[in-house]
Amino acid sequence: MHRKHRPATYGLLAEFESPEALHNAAIRARSEGYSCMDAYTPFPVEGMGAIFGSHRKRVSLITLIGGLAGGLGGYYMQHWMSAVNYPLNVGGRPLESILAFIPVTFEMAVLGAALSAFLGMLALNGLPQPYHPVFNVDQFAMASRDKFFLCIQAIDPKFDQRGTRELLEAMDAHGVFDVPY
């Protein structure tokens, strides 16, 4: 994961007093052309997802694929066991008893969908993540209490140590911190 030109810092972290200030700052930053940024708040702030772009569609697609794979796999498993590997005559019913296979097929589809939704969500979130540079800023502990943070990452093509700091300060940030690796 090491880039050739790794920026000197992870990025800039701006602290805000209220969810509204954070919301406005995020909109402003986006309109300035920044895309690599994230917000950290003590509680869910409505509308933030829309600003950063949500991954709803991608999780849905992963879940659908997982569900279909689980269903098809579940059916194939029963077909192979009952009709190919160990054919067993049960009361004269056909070996390939489609009706009898449906409950397990359905259950396997649900299992596949649920597991892929959960694991897909974790994968898209980049979790689990034992280390994150934002915790190097002492003030960041307040993100789980009563302060609201916006972090613009240094890998953003528009990032400029001076210009970005000025922009954040101009947006009523309570404080702007360098985030070291």
Partner: peptide, 9 residues
């Protein structure tokens, strides 16, 4: 309903 009646035969 279909499965039970089919299996019961």
């Amino acid at each position: 309903q279909l499965l039970l009646i089919w299996a019961g035969n």
